[in-house]
Design a protein around this nucleic acid. Structure first.
Length: 579
RNA sequence: GCGCCCGUAGCUCAGGGGAUAGAGUGAUGGCCUCCGAAGCCAUAGGUCGCGCGUUCGAUUCGCGCCGGGCGCGCCA
């Protein structure tokens, strides 16, 4: 076995340090990182004053033997200085000023590794308990407004699993942004105008005629789901004698489906702050005004009887028709009008969650926004709005793909999935992968093997802690001190320190997930945290006889439970005390 | 054909210039007189699609292939 070279220098006195909460913000981990960066900066200034501090980077070693933080600085420097990495590392370590928080060492091939003093890690639990449900949150966005648009289904049928993925993503991304201090508005945009809606009206009308025994011609690309028949029935039950008033039928159908979609969302636990109707953009003249703004900006031209927008001037690969030769508008004109309202409503930041099959519209909408606002005092910037594009969901059941549901006709409805595997599992599952990977939802796995379902794994860690706390009440009621004030010095076991370390990472994980619109990072974090807790729980007894150790462990449990709660609630998943 | 995304363990997926590439699931074998076994521990499983380049170092970055998904409408 090839033992690596290892030089060790202990810094600091080794005594326990009286840490003070004020020394740290909400994130122990971030504080320590900046502390270490500071140490390296000073060492670098001594060893290689001409090198820029921007070289300094820190990473988290995968293996515990390499410490808590690690820097490849020496290896990056070696070439510039023409000195072997190990020697550079040694010089840097020599130059690092003493620290009460960390010890430092260097190893082959030239990493500089830092170990955080247990007392600093222990303090993390105090921070968690003091902050409670605010732990991990930040107000860095300063209450600036952001609008998150998602689902935005046409009111032409029940919501399907793709909408479910969007609902889970949008809701969680909204929560992530809130956690960073954004003032979030969740909005649903109804495409309740245009050809699809007309198509729906004709489909329902045909079913009504069928019911009445009249000759009915079903539209060629009409909606075939059973729900169309249900609406037809309801229409007649509402006292209508026939379905010849297409507008009345359509209005009725849209209202019914909006109500049904609301129920779907309610079942999923998703709420919106506002709903925006495409039809209102026509009613209040915004579509017309948008067209005029684009013409005034000089970004349009006429050809073949249609009006075109020069989207190629904004990076699109071809120009787009905005007003068809029949005088009606293509869908993207109301889209631009709609997004202009977001900007006008004061949302200088906007996030759209959409299926990746719509990615072609991104360049068009952005182009339209820039063109229409080009004469404005504050033009819409090129990258507005942000997009999160997600891939399709395939539902597997009984070894095959599940494509058809009886009611919905051509797709698996969100409601069916919730009824089948439960809301928590659907949310957790749909959030457990990056948005831009295709999703295979295995119903059999989520349902019949529910004990292997990762959501239960995390929830169980939470329930277990609740059970321990209950036990404690029964066994030691009145004899244990306040846990928030417990001395955590006894927490020095490897598993305890790992848990503390993990708790300290949470604020950074949140921040990063929010910045990348990536809720799956929270899912993975929670799985790891729960896993480390289960492992700890199996290896050590919490309710030991010695009161100081018992209190310290209980305080750690409380802190873990707090972070599990914070994370799960952010994802919209419940945190049961018993399962 | 062009554009965007994706190819990592049998399967489902993380990771994303650094040390021995990780989870879950499936397989095998252990752990309940003990706070919840919906749990834990151990073993097994890999040319990170292929090739060339950049780099001290590439699974990660660049280019080119191969394979898959989605777009490319005077549809939404």
């Amino acid at each position: 076995m090839n033992q690596p070279l290892l030089y060790l220098r202990i810094r600091g006195s080794g005594r326990r340090i009286g840490y003070n909460t004020e020394h740290f913000g909400q994130s122990m981990s971030a504080e320590i990182k900046s502390h270490i960066t500071g140490l390296l900066t000073r060492a670098l200034a001594k060893v290689a004053p001409q090198q820029p501090g921007s070289l300094i980077s820190l990473e988290r070693p995968k293996q515990a033997q390499h410490g808590d933080f690690s820097s490849p600085l020496a290896m990056q420097l070696a070439r510039k200085l023409k000195i072997p990495p190990v020697e550079t590392a040694e010089a840097l370590v020599e130059a690092i000023p003493p620290s009460d928080w960390v010890t430092v060492e260097f190893t082959r091939p030239g990493f500089i590794n830092f170990r955080v003093h247990p007392a600093a890690k222990q303090h993390t639990a105090k921070i968690v308990l003091a902050a409670g449900e605010r732990y991990g949150r930040s107000d860095s966005a300063g209450a600036r407004p952001v609008i998150v648009e998602f689902v935005s289904a046409n009111p032409t049928g029940p919501l399907h699993v793709g909408h479910g993925r969007q609902a889970a993503l949008g809701d969680a991304i909204g929560a992530l942004l809130e956690s960073q201090g954004w003032r979030v508005t969740r909005e649903f945009y109804y495409n309740d105008a245009g050809a699809q809606i007309r198509n729906l009206g004709l489909s329902v009308q045909a079913r009504i005629r069928e019911k009445l025994g009249a000759r009915a011609e079903f539209p060629a690309d009409g909606y075939h789901g059973d729900y169309v028949r249900e609406i037809a029935e309801k229409f007649l039950e509402a006292g209508n004698t026939d379905g010849e008033d297409l507008e009345a039928v359509t209005r009725f159908a849209v209202a019914e489906l909006r109500r049904e979609q609301d129920l779907d969302l309610q079942a999923f636990g998703v709420r919106f702050d506002s709903y925006y109707l495409e039809s209102s953009l026509y009613r209040d003249g915004r579509v017309q005004r948008t067209v005029q703004a684009l013409i005034d900006a000089g970004k349009t031209f006429e050809q073949d009887g249609a009006l075109w927008l020069k989207t190629t001037e904004y990076g699109d690969d071809k120009d787009r028709v905005m007003r068809k030769s029949d005088g009606t508008h293509t869908y993207f004109v109301p889209d631009v009008a709609y997004h202009l309202t977001k900007w006008e409503r004061g949302f200088t930041r906007a996030v759209n969650i959409q299926g990746s099959d719509h990615h072609g519209t991104v360049a068009r909408v952005r182009a339209g926004l820039q063109a229409a606002s080009s004469k404005w005092e504050r033009a819409v910037p090129p990258g507005y709005p942000d997009y999160v594009l997600h891939k399709m969901v395939t539902v597997m059941k009984g070894g095959g793909e599940m494509k058809i549901s009886k009611r919905a006709g051509s797709y698996v409805s969100l409601r069916e999935l919730i009824d089948e595997v439960g809301r928590d599992a659907v949310r957790f599952f749909l959030l457990s992968r990056k948005a831009d990977t295709e999703f295979v939802f295995d119903v059999d796995l989520a349902k019949s093997q529910s004990e292997e379902n990762p959501v239960y794994y995390v929830q169980m860690a939470h329930a277990r802690i609740c059970a321990v706390l209950e036990q404690r009440k029964a066994l030691f009621a009145g004899r244990d001190p306040d846990l928030a004030a417990a001395d955590l010095a006894p927490l020095i076991g490897a598993r305890e320190l790992a848990l503390l370390q993990r708790l300290g990472e949470y604020p950074e994980v949140l921040e990063n997930a929010a910045a990348e619109f990536a809720p799956h990072q929270i899912v993975f974090y929670l799985r790891e945290l729960a896993g480390e807790f289960h492992s700890y729980y199996n290896a050590e007894r919490i309710l030991v006889a010695e009161a100081p150790l018992r209190s310290a462990r209980l305080a750690l449990c409380l802190a873990v439970r707090q972070v599990l709660r914070n994370g799960l609630s952010l994802l919209g998943v419940s945190q049961p005390e018993k399962m």
